[in-house]
Amino acid sequence: MLTTGTAALATITSLLAAFKADRSATQQGEFNDFITWLTEKNHNQVVEFLTQNQTTTISIKTILNQNHEQLVERLKSLEDAMFSIAINSPTFQTLAKAINPEAPELSIQAKNILKFIFKDGTGAFSIKKGIDEKLQFIGLNTRPSNEMLSEPRFLQEDLESLVNCGFFLFPTNNNPQYSITRQGIKFAQSLIEAESSEI
Rank of each mutant, 00 (worst) to 15 (best):
A8L: 12
R23K: 04
L162I: 06
T13I: 01
P101G: 12
V163H: 07
N146C: 00
L78T: 13
T11S: 08
F167T: 12
K186E: 15
F19T: 03
T39R: 12
I60P: 05
A10M: 03
T62Q: 14
L149I: 09
L106M: 11
T122Y: 00
Q136F: 00
N146L: 07
T94Y: 02
Q156F: 11
L75G: 03
I117T: 02
L75Q: 05
I63R: 04
N174R: 11
I117P: 05
A21D: 14
Q27R: 10
A96K: 02
I192Y: 07
F118L: 13
F170Q: 15
N164F: 10
T56H: 12
A124G: 00
P90G: 03
K115H: 03
E102V: 13
Q189E: 15
N146P: 00
Q27I: 12
T62A: 12
I87T: 07
Q54D: 09
G139E: 04
L38G: 00
N174I: 06
F187P: 04
E40M: 07
I58T: 14
A188H: 11
I58E: 14
E102C: 01
E151H: 12
P171F: 11
Q66M: 13
E79G: 13
P152C: 08
E48T: 07
P90N: 07
E79C: 00
F31Q: 07
F125E: 02
T36L: 08
K20L: 13
A81Y: 09
A18K: 11
M1V: 14
S145C: 00
P176A: 10
S190P: 02
E105D: 10
T62S: 14
F170V: 08
N100L: 14
I63S: 09
K97P: 01
S89M: 05
F34Q: 08
M1I: 14
L162M: 11
F125S: 03
S161P: 01
T6M: 05
F116D: 03
L71V: 11
F92S: 15
E40G: 00
F19Y: 04
R143M: 10
G130A: 03
R74T: 10
T26I: 12
T55A: 14
I185E: 10
